[in-house]
């Protein structure tokens, strides 16, 4: 656990939360796409901070590496590739915005009400015998565990999924000069 102190923990939590929510709101409300991608990057980084707070340093690292370093970059590439000259504006109609607001507020309210009725642990339990390395080792061990509680099969499947995604996206986005630019 990164923080040994309850107060520090609380302050960090609220600060990170504020940042995350702020950046998230900015992300969905801004009209410019590239700014939206930047704000997404910020939110994902803050989430990495969350993982640190929760003691999962490995996950924090993975988050930065994959999400921020890979996916957001991918998004930026895609934005660049699909940008028509004028289309920088992204203004949805008022009706749609209200409707979406209503729906999301409803969802949020529902979830919060459900949480408040449940019995949830209040205190952050300490990690028994934790050191920053054991989590990684444990994760690695579990990923290759062939036993009943092992994740070796999902692991292999996910790698196949990545392969399929790779090949598929190349096939779809390929520039074929003979058929006017589309795949096939």
């Amino acid at each position: 656990m990164l923080v040994g102190n309850e107060t520090l923990y609380t302050i960090l939590f609220y600060a990170l939360s504020l940042a995350a929510v702020l950046f998230a709101l900015l992300m969905v409300c801004t009209k410019k796409i590239l700014r939206s991608a930047a704000y997404l990057m910020a939110v994902l980084s803050v989430t990495a901070g969350y993982y640190m707070l929760l003691g999962q340093e490995f996950m924090a690292g993975v988050q930065i590496l994959v999400y921020v370093g890979g996916i957001v970059v991918l998004f930026i590439f895609a934005v660049m590739l699909t940008r028509s000259v004028e289309l920088d504006e992204d203004k949805p109609t008022l009706g749609r915005r209200l409707l979406a607001l209503l729906v999301s507020v409803l969802l949020f309210a529902f979830s919060v009400v459900m949480f408040s009725w449940s019995e949830l642990p209040v205190l952050l339990p300490g990690l028994p015998g934790s050191s920053s390395g054991s989590a990684v080792a444990e994760i690695g061990r579990r990923l290759l565990d062939t036993g009943p509680t092992g994740y070796v099969i999902p692991f292999e499947v996910v790698s196949l999924l990545l392969l399929a995604a790779l090949i598929g996206s190349i096939a779809v986005a390929k520039y074929d000069s003979s058929s006017g630019g589309g795949a096939r």
């Binding site: 992300m27 939110v43 203004k91 949805p92 999301s104 969802l107 949020f108 919060v112 949480f115």
Partner: peptide, 16 residues
């Protein structure tokens, strides 16, 4: 869940 809801809002709203 707040983050999730914001994500849903964005999903339903963004034009791009």
């Amino acid at each position: 869940s707040l983050l999730f809801s914001i994500g849903v809002y964005g999903l339903l709203t963004r034009r791009n």
